[in-house]
Amino acid sequence: MSERKKGWKEIPVGGVCWKPATEYSTGDWRTFKPVHDSEKCTKCLLCPIICPDASINWNTATQDIEFNYNFCKGCGICANECPANAIEMVREGEA
């Protein structure tokens, strides 16, 4: 994270942002990690919609739910809400 900071002659005018937030990882905030059980999952697609961090995606190729651990902060809402109990929160490093 120790990249050279730009000077006033280099940055865009008027405080316009020049990096997408998707280049900023929030995954290392996590203490607990959601682990998804594809067998139990009914593909109801609730979890991608209620995730605060848009870190659960529907993979159209595999027709399955995918977690993006680069952004998942480990809040556990998906596990709490999953109607099929297909998501389990596991302490980081234990799974």
Binding site: V13, V16, W18
Partner: peptide, 13 residues
């Protein structure tokens, strides 16, 4: 003027 935005290109301010 054009300004560097967050999509990696210069766009109108």
């Amino acid at each position: 003027p054009l300004v560097m935005g967050h999509e990696g290109k210069k766009v109108p301010f």
